[in-house]
Amino acid sequence: MLVGEVKSIKELYGLDLIAPGHRACAGCGALVAVRQILMASKKPLIVVNATSCLEVTSTPYPQTMWKVPWVHLLFENAATAASGIEAALKALSRKYGRQEHYIIAFGGDGGTFDIGIQALSGALERGHRFLYVCYDNEAYMNTGIQRSGATPLGAATTTSPVGSKIVGKVQNKKDLLEIVAAHRIPYAATASPSHWKDLTNKVRKAQSYDGPSFIHVIAPCNRGWYFDPSYTIKVARLAVETRYWPLYEVENGRYRITHSVPSPKPLEEFLKVQRRLSHMLLPENAEVLERLKAYVDERWERLQKLSACFT
């Protein structure tokens, strides 16, 4: 049920809702993803933002990047703020004829996986109509690259450094989309700004449902991942092509891989271009690398099986 499917990038021209002059780093993956999402979004739109790189770099008072109404309250409550706006518009439109709006909440991985997961779960369970987008740069970038529940195994962050005894993060990444899907919301998907058509169509699909929806988008961060700022989209694409970042959706409980990767590139291709992960290619870290590969393979296999169930 694709309502208003995006077929050509030309359809999105002129819909840019981000003004120039924001303070994000050159080549910030989050900003690229957000720009695509806003271009694709249905209107009228209200944006909610959790405290994060996106929030801090886009609204240096008295300036703002946002050409849409935008609300930021705190780090852990973007989903709740969206609930409050939705509830208010529902009541005000019923009582006084106020116009209804589409609502998109943006949170980073820290604001979504960790400190904001309770608020997110509550909002999904209550069934408010809004799209939550977690832009995932796999660490707390705004506070200086600390590890989060989204940081992958082995990655070096400022609170999971590569030490002489412990090498980077010891745990695997939390599987957030599965947690979200377990709320049985109508639509949940992963996405990547390297696959803009897949991403923008997922936004439209998500917004066609009268209920909560969720998109988990990879957002390469050259500051925290240590790669050349011109490589953002290349890194995002490598994540997809190595099966590190599977593109799939869970629509009304039905799993579907939306971009198949029949012959994946070796995971090493993704790791070697980023200094946060490249140490895993050293011989002494072979065991960590194997564990990460196993995690990636198992996840892909499971998704393939789940997808097969519904086709």
């Binding site: 909610v48 609300v71 309250l73 705190l74 852990e76 409550n77 709740t80 703020a81 969206a82 609930s83 409050g84 706006i85 509830a87 208010a88 518009l89 009541a91 005000l92 106020r98 309770q118 608020a119 779960s121 509550g122 369970e125 209550r126």
Partner: peptide, 19 residues
Amino acid sequence: VESEHSAMSACVAASLTGA
């Protein structure tokens, strides 16, 4: 809501929306 943190958060957002 699922907590008082969220109670006040939802109140703030709803109030900003004019409710």
